[in-house]
């Protein structure tokens, strides 16, 4: 193994959310932030959260979500937008690639997951 420093940085954590072990891994790429949020230990559904050129009333860009792999259902888009938008905004509107494998997608659980993501800030 050569000794070159890794050029990809990542941080991870885990916590019990409503009794379910939840792991988060955030990985920084120059064109993407890759976030895995899993309650199954798997990547699960892949969702991209991308800022659009269209802006809202406060000149913040709007975000679009796309399911790249897995079940394309409305709740996936809701979770993806909730978990990915704030990261993209903080990371200079970089697109987010999310791996979601959730047993619990309640509002309360999603809120706690956002805190977990914040504790793994790589951007």
């Amino acid at each position: 193994m050569s000794a070159a420093e890794p050029i990809i940085s990542s941080r991870q954590t885990h916590k019990e959310i409503n009794g379910i072990t939840t792991q988060v891994v955030c990985t920084e790429f120059s064109n993407y932030i890759f976030i895995v949020i899993t309650q199954y230990g798997k990547i699960g559904t892949l969702v991209s959260v991308t800022p659009e050129s269209r802006c809202d009333d406060f000149s913040n860009p709007m975000f679009s979500t796309k399911v790249l792999l897995g079940k394309d259902e409305p709740l996936t888009h809701v979770c993806g937008k909730n978990l990915g938008t704030f990261v993209s905004q903080e990371a200079g509107n970089r697109p987010i690639l999310l791996g979601l494998a959730l047993k619990d997608s309640s509002v309360d659980a999603i809120k706690q997951m956002k805190e977990l993501i914040k504790s793994c800030k790589v951007w």
């Binding site: 193994m1 050569s2 070159a4 890794p6 990809i8 792991q23 891994v25 230990g41």
Partner: peptide, 25 residues
């Protein structure tokens, strides 16, 4: 747990980096 592993190698004057994330299965 999910684990992360980095390594790198020089091939033909260029350093190639590898980043592995181990998941369940």
């Amino acid at each position: 747990p999910i684990s992360v592993h980095n390594f790198s190698e020089r091939f033909m004057e260029q350093t190639v980096h590898f980043h592995v994330m181990k998941l369940s299965g």
